Amino acid sequence: MKLSPLHWWDELKRFWLLYHLGDSRFRFMWDEPPPDEWVALDCETTGLNVHRDQIISIGAVRIAGDRILASQRLELLVRPSRAISPDAVRVHGLRERDVAQGLDPDAAMMRLMRFIGSRPLVGYYLEFDVAMVDRAIFPLLGMGLPQRKIEVSAMYYEYKLRQLPPYRHGASIDLRFSTIMEELGLPERHAHDALNDAVMAALAFVKLRHLLKQS
């Protein structure tokens, strides 16, 4: 079968990345993902600087079709090597003594990568979470997460834009997580808890997939 230029380039990139992979045990992340499966991901951190701060909590849950697989979830505390900023504690409530018995960061990343597999990632403000994870796994793999990333706020923006008449396409759309959940009629859990935030992102993703198909 002849490959299209785009597919050929993707395969070449995949080969190059696998060739340079630091730990061959994680080649499975480049496999074809299971059909209609995703992983919603959220992290809490020592602060908001992606170059300096560290992950202290990870929450993830698998999605299959229209179902959020609550029994297939991951909830980890991670022991950081730097102090948690007071501002961060006020947001997520995790103090240094709360994570002192957490996993070593490398062990936590290995568990996370095995949980994700090759499934695409879903999240709210996912770019930040992925940047934090990528920095943590780079010493292990020599590269970041290869999975496709799906931003819930971008899906919501597209959905709301479709509801507006063309002359209002420049209108401001509120992309706060609480607004998205309220507008979609979805239940809100306690925010800034990694697993709760992952589950809420999963709920929003499933609902928005349906709405975007219908609109």
Rank of each mutant, 00 (worst) to 15 (best):
Lys2Leu: 15
Lys2Met: 11
Leu3Lys: 15
Ser4Glu: 05
Pro5Thr: 02
Pro5Cys: 02
Leu6Asp: 09
Leu6Trp: 13
His7Trp: 11
Trp8Lys: 15
Trp9Val: 12
Asp10Thr: 11
Asp10Pro: 03
Leu12Gly: 11
Leu12Ala: 14
Lys13Cys: 07
Arg14Val: 02
Arg14Phe: 06
Arg14Cys: 06
Phe15His: 14
Trp16Gln: 13
Leu17Arg: 15
Leu18Arg: 07
Leu21Asp: 09
Asp23Gln: 01
Ser24Ile: 10
Arg25Ser: 12
Arg25Glu: 13
Arg25Val: 00
Phe28Met: 06
Asp31His: 06
Pro35Cys: 01
Pro35Asp: 04
Asp36Gln: 11
Glu37Arg: 13
Trp38Gln: 01
Val39Cys: 05
Ala40Glu: 01
Leu41Trp: 04
Cys43His: 03
Thr46Ala: 05
Leu48Phe: 14
Asn49Glu: 14
His51Asn: 14
Gln54Tyr: 08
Gln54Phe: 09
Gln54Ile: 08
Ile58Phe: 05
Val61Asn: 06
Ile63Leu: 02
Ala64Tyr: 13
Ala70Trp: 10
Ala70Val: 12
Ser71Phe: 10
Arg73Glu: 12
Arg73Trp: 03
Leu74Tyr: 05
Leu74Thr: 03
Glu75Phe: 08
Leu76Val: 07
Val78Lys: 00
Ser81Thr: 13
Ala83Asn: 11
Ser85Phe: 03
Val89Pro: 03
Val89Ala: 06
Glu96Thr: 04
Glu96Trp: 03
Arg97Ser: 15
Arg97Ile: 12
Val99Glu: 05
Ala100Val: 15
Gln101Tyr: 10
Pro105Asn: 02
Ala107Leu: 14
Ala108Arg: 00
Ala108Phe: 00
Ile116Arg: 07
Gly117His: 02
Pro120Asp: 00
Glu127Tyr: 11
Phe128Tyr: 14
Val130Met: 05
Arg135Ala: 12
Arg135Ser: 12
Phe138Asn: 13
Pro139Ser: 10
Gly144Asn: 10
Gly144Ser: 11
Gly144Thr: 08
Leu145Ser: 08
Pro146Met: 00
Val152Thr: 03
Ala154Asp: 08
Met155Tyr: 12
Tyr157Lys: 10
Glu158Gly: 10
Glu158Pro: 02
Glu158Asp: 12
Glu158Phe: 07
Leu161Ser: 10
Leu161Trp: 07
Arg162Ser: 11
Arg162Phe: 01
Gln163Asp: 07
Leu164Val: 02
Arg168Glu: 05
Arg168Asp: 04
His169Cys: 02
His169Arg: 08
His169Asn: 05
Gly170His: 08
Asp174Met: 02
Asp174His: 04
Arg176Phe: 11
Gly185Val: 07
Arg189Glu: 14
Arg189Ser: 13
Ala191Arg: 15
Ala191Asp: 01
Leu195Met: 08
Asp197Leu: 05
Ala198Leu: 03
Ala198Phe: 00
Ala201Glu: 08
Leu203Ala: 13
Ala204Lys: 09
His210Ser: 15
His210Leu: 13
